[in-house]
Design a protein around this nucleic acid. Structure first.
Length: 448
DNA sequence: GCATGATCATGC
DNA sequence: GCATGATCATGC
């Protein structure tokens, strides 16, 4: 007998979309009458996590080593946050899994049950409030979470450290302070509860793998600062993410930024340097104080370009300033410049008329052609490094010397300087994409 | 009119 | 307080 779900239990995206329906609501709003009365009567006393699993998602997870949504490989975690001043903080650490001292010592990281069970989490954060019934806690964040590569490196080290103590017969000496993100927290019903460990006669406290509250705070920050522009349903129609994004801008083509601001209710000063960025966010349906989730996740650089009558951008495109001391230690292959030039860009392009009035012209995704990057980009980088090493940081490659990019000041003012390897100080600078080059690129990809 | 140098406004 | 993305100013 297959039961019917309000979501597709084999598809993480569908599970997440269903989970997000709970955001802004409490369980009392969402559950059928019979479910509510069960929990009010106390018979299903269980914590909020149990109620979410059984009554909201209608799953009945029992297997401790498999994820809750077995087919989708998704592990559901319901966890409280609290208000601290204006911010939302984790109320507690997030317990992921009991540590079985007799099993874990024989595992390695790659095939550990920790990894297989926690590969993809569905995090449901609710706002805990003093004195409220748990059915009335309001959910704030619902999202899939897989550990970013850089976090996973540290979590692996943490895991190794904890398992290392078990292997050394020192499970009784484990401390949460041993590790950075992943901790082995004590977990017992009674304080006197003790377990055997495989390589020592000493009894150890029962412990569980848990993400520290500080790590959960970073997850909360990363979740709240992002807002999705394109809903999963919009991609079901066979359109690509990029097509959907272009579509959003279409109704505004030919109109001025002032008109767009008016129509979308953007109340920002026209002279604000973030004016165009705000318009872009509003067109994509993202609030001002949020970042555009898809662009952040895909590392896409969003920039506004204003084209002069002759089709050349009014301004060059800057990257962030570099450190003279740091850049001379980089090789081209692993340089920040190469990384920047191999990223994808999303341009919102306005055309300026004879009076200097801008009108939205089109939007364009763009990645610098790799042959340009590996030739002109590399030459610009290597000349820059060479000249800095020769203590000539004042004379870095100019736009007239390179087809693709150049180096130019990029600081607060001419007194904003950074140390050079030669012991001097030179005005802070960065790489910039040449206006001419961008004009040529935008012209050739115009109708793609 | 463009290349280069200088600086601003904002958000974190 | 400062870095970043954006923009202004100037000199040829």
């Amino acid at each position: 007998m297959s039961r019917t779900y309000a979501y597709d239990p084999t598809a993480p995206a569908s599970i997440e979309a269903y989970a997000k329906r709970l955001v802004g609501h409490c369980l009392r709003d969402m559950l059928a009458e019979e479910d509510r009365t069960v929990y009010q009567a106390g018979s299903g006393k269980g914590n909020l996590g149990d109620i979410v699993e059984r009554s909201y998602f209608k799953i009945n997870p029992g297997n401790v080593s498999a994820p809750d949504f077995v087919e989708a490989g998704v592990e559901l975690k319901t966890t409280p946050i609290k208000r601290v001043g204006k911010r939302l903080r984790a109320k507690e650490r997030l317990v992921l899994q009991m540590i079985d001292y007799d099993v874990v010592y024989g595992e390695n990281w790659e095939n550990s049950s920790f990894r297989s069970k926690n590969e993809l989490l569905l995090l449901m954060f609710y706002l805990w409030e003093e004195g409220r019934a748990s059915l009335d806690y309001v959910f704030k964040i619902a999202r899939l979470w897989s550990f970013p590569e850089e976090d996973l490196e540290i979590i692996r080290d943490d895991w190794e450290k904890i398992v290392g103590k078990v292997r050394a017969g020192r499970a009784h000496e484990i401390s949460e302070g041993d590790t950075l993100y992943l901790a082995a927290c004590t977990k017992s019903s009674s304080g006197a509860d003790r377990r055997c460990q495989p390589f020592s006669d000493e009894l150890a406290k029962p412990r569980a793998f848990a993400l520290k509250a500080s790590y959960m705070n970073s997850v909360i920050d990363r979740s709240l600062s992002l807002e999705t522009a394109v809903a999963p349903e919009e991609l079901k129609t066979g359109r690509t993410f990029e097509e959907v994004v272009h579509e959003r801008f279409k109704p505004f083509i030919g109109t001025t930024p002032e008109e767009i601001a008016e129509r979308l209710g953007v109340d920002a000063a026209r002279n604000a340097k973030s004016f165009y960025a705000l318009i872009t966010k509003r067109i994509l349906g993202v609030r001002e104080d949020k970042k555009i989730a898809e662009f952040e996740k895909a590392d896409i650089i969003v920039r506004t370009i204003r084209l002069k009558l002759n089709g050349v951008p009014k301004e060059a495109i800057s990257f962030k300033a570099f450190s003279y001391l740091d850049i001379v230690t980089q090789t081209w292959e692993e340089s920040d410049l190469r990384e920047d030039l191999t990223r994808r860009f999303f341009f919102v392009i306005y055309q300026l008329d004879g009076q200097g009035q801008a009108r939205l012209s089109r939007t364009q995704f763009w990645t610098p052609p790799i042959e340009d990057v590996e030739s002109h980009g590399q030459r610009c980088f290597e000349q820059t490094v060479q000249m800095i090493k020769e203590d000539r940081a004042e004379y870095l490659p100019k736009a007239s010397e390179n087809k693709v990019c150049h180096v130019r000041p990029h600081g607060r003012n001419s007194r904003d300087m950074l140390p050079t390897p030669g012991g001097g100080r030179v005005v802070r600078k960065s790489f910039w994409l040449n206006q001419r080059y961008m004009a040529q690129q935008l012209a050739t990809i115009e109708d793609s």
